[in-house]
Amino acid sequence: MRLKRCERKQKRGKRGGIRARLAASPHKPAIPSIVLANVRSLENKLDDIRLLGSSQRNVKDCCAFVFTETWLSDSVPDRAIQLDQLTCYRADRVIVAGADKDSRQIQARHYKTLQEMCKKAKPNQEDVSQLLDLEFEARRSFIDSDTMKEENRACLILDAYPCFKELHHALGELRRILDPHNNKFISQVKLRWEEFCSRVEFYGVSKKAMNPPMTMDKTEAHLALMKALPTLFPTPAHPPKKMGNASEAFLHVLKPTEDPDAVLQKRSLSCPVVMFDGCKCVIAVGNLPVTTFDKEKIGEAMIYVMAYFYALHLTYPKCVATLLSVIQTEVLQDAIHEHDTTSSYRKALAEWHAFIGK
């Protein structure tokens, strides 16, 4: 017998429909669930994502994870980003030399993101490095252009890329230029520089350009070596008269009575220089102070100087061009075309190779 509507104890559809089933079993939705996130670099957030997947049931039971702006490249294999019980599908953006108009527009968006990130008090350094990787082609086109005067180049570039005031990013740019696929490049350069310096000490003593370093502490020995380098790998061009020794082109040890700002303002060269006051080291480019580092790292100062030459696309001063060219080929292993070599460079390199038996 069919009951009348008024006699029904329960309204039709009260427990029916997707909304009711979802409320009854929130962790087993009737429709596929998706996590959508704009991650701005996926690699350094995978641990957080996996933690959420293991600790939060609503994340663990999701059917699909969709991530945008992953900043992945061909160098990152699928297994490095794989999530448990999920299949990985990727659509990485590829930026190559000679990029087309769309790629340039993409790099412009990366630059805008980089600028926003650098305005933060403590930007994520890994994210900054990945953005610098993605925006490399457009950045080098800007930096390597001949539209900037040498004396203004550093100021303009550092205004556009304040991240290069950090030594970490200047060294990273050196790697991108010389060996972009080798993540151990900087550590290898440091090892080669250490070996180069140990040989130069004997070379300097044999040429009577240096005293034996036995009576010196590490800082004094490094400073003495840096001061002797232009003598060991000489250039016919003389340094500016007010400068004195050619090593002043890249190293200045401050006297107690000297004001660092006043010394910088008097500099006539627009190249990187290390200023040491006995406690800390300052790297300046031209008249502009850029960054500082501890005196314990004074032994790596020439690597930092070379990093800024490359990152800012600066020209070697003539008074130390031979020395810096030797460091370029022997330590950085960046070859110089035979047509670009000078007679002083060839002579200095031949004498050096004869000494080390190469």
Results as ranks from 00 to 15, higher is better:
Met210Ser: 03
Pro212Ile: 04
Asp217Thr: 07
Ala221Gly: 02
Ala221Ser: 11
His222Trp: 04
His222Thr: 04
Ala224Ser: 07
Met226Asp: 08
Ala228Glu: 02
Ala228Thr: 02
Leu229Pro: 00
Pro230Arg: 04
Thr231Glu: 10
Phe233Met: 06
Phe233Gln: 11
Phe233Thr: 08
Phe233Lys: 06
Pro236Gln: 14
Pro236Val: 12
Pro236Asn: 13
Pro240Tyr: 15
Lys241Tyr: 15
Asn245Leu: 12
Ala246Glu: 09
Glu248Arg: 06
Glu248Val: 08
Ala249Leu: 10
Phe250Ile: 05
Phe250Leu: 03
Val253Glu: 03
Val253Met: 00
Leu254Pro: 01
Pro256Leu: 14
Thr257Pro: 02
Glu258Thr: 06
Pro260Ala: 13
Asp261Cys: 06
Asp261Glu: 15
Ala262Ile: 14
Val263Ile: 13
Leu264Tyr: 13
Lys266Cys: 07
Pro272Cys: 11
Pro272Ser: 11
Val274Lys: 01
Gly278Gln: 13
Gly278Lys: 13
Cys279Tyr: 15
Lys280Leu: 14
Cys281Ser: 10
Cys281Asp: 09
Val282Lys: 01
Ile283Glu: 11
Ile283His: 12
Ile283Ala: 12
Gly286Ile: 05
Thr291Ile: 04
Phe293Pro: 05
Asp294Tyr: 07
Asp294Glu: 14
Lys295Val: 03
Glu296Asp: 11
Gly299Phe: 02
Glu300Ile: 04
Ala301Tyr: 03
Ala301Pro: 00
Val305Glu: 08
Tyr308Glu: 05
Phe309His: 09
Leu312Lys: 09
His313Tyr: 14
Thr315Arg: 01
Thr315His: 07
Val320Ala: 05
Val320Glu: 07
Ala321Phe: 04
Leu324Pro: 04
Gln328Ser: 03
Thr329Pro: 01
Thr329Glu: 06
Val331Gln: 01
